[in-house]
Nucleic acid binder design. Structure first.
Lengths: 284, 284
DNA sequence: AAAAGTATAAAAGAAATTTGACAGAAATTG
DNA sequence: CAATTTCTGTCAAATTTCTTTTATACTTTT
């Protein structure tokens, strides 16, 4: 039962001083601001014993219990930027791995969004969309497919996209080309790979901008990265999920495309034509 | 100056354990929930002295100062009545592309789950987990990274996983090897690729089982596939999202691992040891 | 091998809560 | 209107909880 409802249920028993407290318990921002019983009492112009007496009347142990109940409710309310997934496995299969995974997915994306700096996101989209900059991408053991996916779509939107090979022998010539007009996009999640850190350091020294995609723990590359996005990757297996990373990447692609819808459309038409020409693909 | 900015400014000085704390300081709901330094430390899996060191590094007296700064900011943000419910994306950014994309993601996964045959899912997991079967994977222009991702994880769980190259010159020898003990995993979304259909037909003729991952419209390969999963891929760009596909794939990996947790654990340990031996990766 | 970083645990310190006693105010009642 | 009851605030002391310090051992990195 929510604290609001408790207040409603007990309103008949409340005394004048206690009623003065009610608005302070119902207002979210005040609940956050007024951390101690003393501050709350002062704000509501009552005494601290009155606060405790009210908490007891509502059925709590004392003030801390009441306060943590309020906070838990507030946190729960703020927590859901994403709608919960609806689908369920039939017949009491609530604990089917698919449902567990779906649950984790929502959590991962929620947490990723919670940490996302929208301004940085927009800046990065602008940076990557600007074809004066050359883009180099590198992924790790697990994240390489995501880097490929990103490179694939970036390549459809613009020129100058280069996916680095996982074998380091091909790196030197790429590094040589890096300058202030270069962006190195690094995907680095646990277990963080030392060579990627080196690559980032060297590239940064050449003047390249570093854009890092990492996990909830944060790669050491964060220290030198110009932009950094963390994507939570909890999974019901021993390995980390890269779904939230893929989500970020696809959304960046969408943002870039939306920046220059006209150019984008042109380029897509050209690609489509080329696909038709090479006849690799089936119609429709 | 906001705590977020302080974190950004000091990110170069932060150590690994301190970085682990960052998401907990940036996420609103966590800031509300985690009241004491002890709970925060436990949640972020660091020690309480680490929390205090970070607080000092950011310029605060101690943990309480840091915490009240965070709460003050949060209260300020929540205060604006309009933004009350969505404290996340500030100032009417409801239509920010990230929010739209998140919305679409949920829809995609919901639709994918609604269409998912749980029995088929379990059967496929058993099939793929059985190391008597050899597995061949093929992906298309857009879906190749997902195929790679799947192959990557399957390869960590078992032997006999073979990712087919996108260039068809290498296909014949693979096709030759296919028999009743073979499984061909095909990723085929619009624009459906004719060569993949051919490959599936030939493989089926050889006796191989066909497992198809496709989009909401359904690839023509569905006709000959033994198992078929549809993953919806609406995206706020001109291209389709493969996030729901990646979700299915990762969940299958989890299901396979859960079938034989012991073997899995052994294999993982071996992999970890090998990683240590080759010294490619940084510890922890 | 040395240095930096980190966890643990115990102890000290600080802050907040709670208690209890009491007195004054307000409301109620006869 | 006076007596009574209830409510409330003040204050100080007791208690509890939380934070901070310190020292040590262990791990990781250089």
């Amino acid at each position: 039962m929510l604290v609001r409802d408790l207040l409603e249920n007990h309103k008949a028993e409340l005394t004048a001083a206690e009623r003065r407290l009610v608005p302070f318990l119902r207002d979210d921002s005040l609940a956050i601001e007024l951390q101690s019983i003393t501050k709350l009492a002062e704000a509501a112009q009552v005494s601290t014993p009155t606060v405790i007496r009210l908490a007891r009347k509502l059925g709590f142990d004392g003030f801390p219990s009441l306060q943590s109940a309020i906070r838990a409710e507030l946190a729960e309310r703020i927590k859901q930027p994403l709608a919960k997934l609806e689908a369920r496995a039939p017949k009491g299969q609530d604990d089917h791995i698919v449902n567990i995974a779906a649950h984790m997915l929502v959590q991962n994306v929620n947490q990723t969004l919670a940490q996302l700096d929208f301004n940085a996101f927009d800046e990065v989209a602008a940076l990557l969309g600007n074809s004066e900059n050359s883009i180099h991408l590198i992924g790790g053991r697990i994240t390489w497919p995501v880097a490929y996916h990103f490179a694939n779509h970036l390549g459809m939107a613009r020129f100058g996209v280069n996916l680095l090979n996982s074998s380091q022998s091909a790196w030197p010539q790429t590094i040589l080309d890096m300058d202030e007009k270069s962006i190195l996009v690094v995907f680095d999640i646990t277990r963080y790979e030392r060579m990627m850190e080196r690559l980032a350091e060297i590239s940064a020294a050449q003047g390249a901008k570093i854009l890092l995609f990492t996990d909830q723990w944060g790669s050491p590359i964060e220290k030198i990265a110009d932009y950094c996005f963390r994507a939570t990757g909890e999974a019901p297996s021993s390995w980390d999920s890269t779904v939230a990373l893929a989500f970020l990447v696809e959304t960046l692609v969408a943002a870039i495309q939306n920046q220059a819808p006209q150019e984008s459309a042109n380029r897509i038409r050209q690609i489509e034509e080329m696909i038709g020409a090479t006849e690799i693909f089936r119609r429709s």
